[in-house]
Design a protein around this nucleic acid. Structure first.
Lengths: 196, 196
DNA sequence: TATAAAAACGATCATACGTTCGTATCCAGA
DNA sequence: TCTGGATACGAACGTATGATCGTTTTTATA
């Protein structure tokens, strides 16, 4: 046998990405074997190499894709907002929504950083830093205008990010808590926490 | 060759635990090989099995130990405190301190849960639930006395825990921020966030 | 001092892994 | 219709892994 009827590079690569996302999320990068991945999409292990360079490369591709999308979406969500308070609210709503919708990507993007080779990791960390900086800027601006009272901008930003990101580990879209309520609760916690 | 002079089961097991903690923390459970672990403490791979049942068993042992210690330490830290506000402050200070001092254990205890077989994982999750419940109780009590304003106790507890636990990923004991300042910042963020 | 348990060695097992390669088939463009 | 690149198969490679086992030496007990 050889090439399957109806096979297309684009579709197969998409399937590899989707399956990789799923398997890495549930088993971890190291624990996921390419045989598992190939089987999931009905392929022989060797055939994967028509679409990916290496296993390591697939991981970087997934995480990098995620980070770039995250950053672009954030800019979109904050576009045109000048007021720091409004911006902080928008940041919170965006971050929560995105992290609910892309639980797997987000989880992998933080928990599998250590599985990246150093050079790749540095690239991702730099992108993450950009994201963090965006929140820092909002906090700083708000503090500057006397809206917020913040002892240390970066520590506060990390604390807020940790809080908001935490939902990835437990939130269940079909669960007791609706999305709006979730955003409300967190918005109140954060806003009241940083207010003067 | 055979048994080494001066070898003792207790010391070797302690060395295995310590090295395991370190290697799992920096490379992950799946990525850590028993050969690596054995080499770290100057042992042949096979000799490990005089002290552990399996690799999986070692992981459970480490996490379980951590959880039990965590719970006991928390009770100690909260002993004799009746006032919810005071209790919340004590909880925050304890949680941060413990998580700074045992970064590795805490990290493994959450990031490697998925590497545990289901039965073991359930045991750990139950212990974690007990810990969470302790914070829930404080929040509930505070809300009941009209000190706190909390829309959903469990969601708020998760949010607070996520925030406080986040420091494990970035805090550097030798860094810019001292322990006291760190506790102050977080205490203010949380307290002001939940206050009426 | 005699003896059994404890602890280590070193060789080895079966298995699983990521990856490569030659070959066969399909599809798109000339 | 012909041709060449794209895509997949299936076998295989070398390596690493977790674990087992027989043996040897040390330590503790009586």
């Amino acid at each position: 046998m050889a090439r399957t009827a109806g096979s297309s590079g684009e579709k197969t690569l998409a399937a590899i990405r989707e399956a990789g996302l799923d398997l890495i999320h549930s088993h971890g990068y190291e624990a996921m074997s390419l045989r598992q991945l190939a089987a999931r999409i009905g392929l022989q292990p060797g055939s994967l190499y028509n679409h990916i360079e290496t296993k390591q490369d697939l991981l970087f591709d997934l995480i990098h894709n995620h980070m770039v999308t995250l950053l672009a979406s954030l800019e979109e969500a904050l576009a045109g907002i000048g007021d720091p308070l409004e911006a902080l609210e928008a940041f919170i709503a965006f971050h929560l929504t995105y992290h609910i919708e892309r639980k797997r990507e987000v989880f992998i993007g933080s928990s599998e950083l250590r599985s990246l080779e150093p050079k790749s990791r540095r690239k991702i960390v730099a992108l993450r830093r950009t994201y963090e900086d965006r929140l820092c800027a909002i906090l700083k601006q708000g503090a500057g205008r006397g809206l917020f009272k913040i002892e240390d901008v970066r520590v506060s930003a990390y604390a807020i990010l940790a809080m908001l990101t935490g939902i990835c580990t437990w939130y269940d879209a079909k669960g007791r808590i609706g999305r709006k309520k979730l955003i409300d609760i967190h918005t109140r916690l954060v806003l009241q926490g940083v207010m003067k």
